[in-house]
Structures are given as C-alpha cells and as structure tokens.
C-alpha cells in the first residue's frame, strides 16, 4: 500500500493525534477483530443492495440502468469470435473498457501496462469469471483480428485462463464510434475528437449488476486507481471498503506508534 507519511514534526501534532485516537478510542481496543467486525456491519447495512438485487422489491432500482444506453453492437475479437457488446461482455459482471488502436504510439502502450497490472490485481479481488477487460479499437478498418493478435503478442498480453478474460475487439467503424460517444469517451471539440493521437487515456469501468459506473484517467496513481475501481465496481461492501477501512486502521496505528515511540 502506498502510504508515505512524514514523521510527525513537533509535539503539537502528536498530541492532536493522540486525542483523535481517544475519540475513536473504543474501537481501538480490539483492533485485531475490528476490520472484519466493521465490514460485517457495513454488509448488514447494505444487505438490500447486495443480497436481494433480483427480488421484486429492488427490481425498480434497476429499472433505469446506465448500460441500457449501450448499443448491443456486434464485435469480432482477437480470436475471431463473434460477440454482442452488451449481451456477451457487459451483462451481469464487472467490466473495464479501454479504447486503443494498434498503430498508437502515444498513450496506448502505457495504458496496456496499467491494465495488465489491473488484470492481475483486480482478478484476485473479483475472481476471474466476474470481471472482463475489453479493448475496443479506434481504427477497425486497420485492426483486423490478426492485427489484434499481433498487437497482443507485442504488448505481452496473454490469453491466460487463470486471469480474467481480456478481449481485444474490432467491428464496424460507425458502430464503434457511436458506442464510444455513448460511453462518454469523446471531446466536445470536434477537431480534438477526430485526432486519434489525442484520444482519451481513461478507463471506463463498471458493474452492470449493481449499475455502478465511472471512468478514471490512466495517468493517476496506480494504487489509488486500483482501490477506487474496487470501491466503485465491488460486488459487496467487503470488497468495496476493505481498503478504506484498512487506511483508517493504518492511520490510527501510525498515530499510536508515534505516541508510543515518543
């Protein structure tokens, strides 16, 4: 976990810290069990959101869904499979979407490296079947399934069955372009929008089951990107908030350590 903190300078900050802890004091006593207890409590409070998604009671919450706006376009992936964008890739799971093109010499290779790490790290959290990574080309006229295969080899992306699926897909330009605009990956300035070298370096991701979607820039801090993605896409509070609860505990422990040392 990337958590660099300055050593506390001066007793003022220290005493403040002590008192903040005193404020949270009662939970500190049984710190070992706190994490799971806190998470269980969170889970209970969220039961209706997580456990009963398919019941009639919460059906209505699912009525207006973000993914309803995604066209169910036909795609061909790097293995030559015919896929329906929504039905085969999005429905009922968590998904990470990236726009790229094989001739890109700008941000794509960097994005690929970040997504490779995420594939491994998020796969451990979500399990390989509940998460899929989808790279959609901006240049379907160039990027045939064979091109995509070659690109994957150059980038070191493997069809690894122990990891979540990573689908490189191409299709009809107009349809892909319409989908891109639907996903919010465009620039309001048509000149910038048409310039592929200026294409967005953002990851669009979401959980269709819970209808939680967001997008974040690839260039931000990796650990924070990862924890934000888990927080937004996570299937339950245990997944979503484990890092937030962990940060809280680390912060409290650090304050405690400082007090003991000084």
């Amino acid at each position: 976990m990337k958590m660099n903190f300055a050593k506390k300078a001066g007793c003022c900050v220290l005493s403040l810290s002590t008192l903040w802890m005193a404020g949270c004091g009662q939970q500190l006593a049984d710190q070992g069990q706190e994490s799971s207890a806190a998470l269980t409590e969170l889970e209970q409070k969220n039961k209706v959101r997580v456990a009963s998604l398919s019941t009639d009671e919460y059906e209505s919450v699912l009525d207006a869904r973000v993914s309803d706006r995604f066209p169910d376009i036909e795609l061909i992936d790097h293995r030559g499979r015919d896929l329906q964008f929504y039905t085969d890739l999005i429905e009922d799971r968590s998904v990470v979407l990236v726009y790229f093109y094989t001739r890109c010499v700008g941000s794509c290779p960097i994005t690929t490296q970040v997504v490779k790490k995420l594939r491994k790290d998020l796969g451990e959290v979500f399990g390989k079947d509940d998460l899929v990574f989808v790279s959609l080309t901006l240049e379907p006229e160039v990027d045939s399934p064979e091109e995509l295969q070659t690109y994957m080899k150059i980038q070191g992306v493997e069809d690894d069955s122990t990891l979540p699926d990573w689908v490189y897909a191409t299709g009809n330009f107009e349809e892909l372009d319409a989908l891109r605009k639907n996903l919010g990956i465009f620039d309001l300035d048509p000149i910038i929008d048409a310039d592929k070298t200026e294409h967005a370096a953002i990851l669009t991701f979401g959980n269709d089951r819970l209808d939680r979607w967001a997008a974040l820039p690839v260039g931000m801090d990796y650990e924070q990107l990862k924890s934000a993605m888990i927080r937004i896409m996570g299937n339950n509070p245990r997944q979503r908030y484990s890092s937030a609860v962990q940060y809280r505990e680390e912060a409290m422990k650090r304050f405690q350590d400082n007090v003991v040392k000084n």
Binding site: L19, W20, A22, C24, G25, A38
Partner: peptide
C-alpha cells in the same frame, strides 16, 4: 468522537 470515523483532534 465515539463513532466509526471519530472527531477532529482540534475538538
């Protein structure tokens, strides 16, 4: 301060 997220040390 006796709640999950506590209160500010300045309190």
């Amino acid at each position: 301060g006796d709640c999950f997220h506590g209160v500010a040390p300045e309190y």
